[in-house]
Amino acid sequence: MTSKPLKAVGEEVWKTKIDKVNAELVALTYGSLVAQLCRDFENNYDRVNEQLDKMGYNIGLRLIEDFLARSGIGRCSSFKDTAEVISKVGFKMFLNVVPRVSNWSADGKTFSLYIDDNPLADFVELPPQSENLWYSNIYCGVLRGALEMTQMQVHAEFVSDVLQGHAATEIKVQLLQILKDEIPAAEE
């Protein structure tokens, strides 16, 4: 584990190790995909959400390697620690935003991420009657995939989204179980 505070780690990685691209281009590309999916699924937003989650999951599986390599972060000692790393280092180094971690459940297995200034949501105005659409659902998949690669099975879902006119953009992350490492039995 690094001895530096996580916020500083995240900022340093962002400043020194990350190639940057104009956020608008990324928002445009992602947005075109979401709009296309809405057309393909004829505005069946449940299916769109599902597809975005799937896409995010595939990305999460690949992203973790990059994350570990660039951040130098080692194994997290607790789920609380994991949440802080996700927000201050993970989101920071990929999206240059630091969601607020809050709303912990009593058993320490569920927390919420509150995202201000969602870079993917730039310019977006949702079509009428799209209350079921979680536009940035890719994040839930990414969290699921990336954490699975670090032996945590989680469920992530949107609770609210400013794009839908809600007061905040909130993702709830719940730890379902720790996955045991597949360690072959030692030879006696």
Partner: peptide
């Protein structure tokens, strides 16, 4: 940044790369 405003927001190129990489398989699947 293609001449956009000096205070333009940035994300990591990796994020873009990852999205681009998934874009085609996703579209094909759908």
């Amino acid at each position: 940044s293609l001449g956009s405003e000096p205070h333009a927001m940035f994300v990591s190129y990796n994020a873009f790369d990852l999205i681009l990489g998934e874009l085609v398989p996703q579209m094909q699947e759908v």
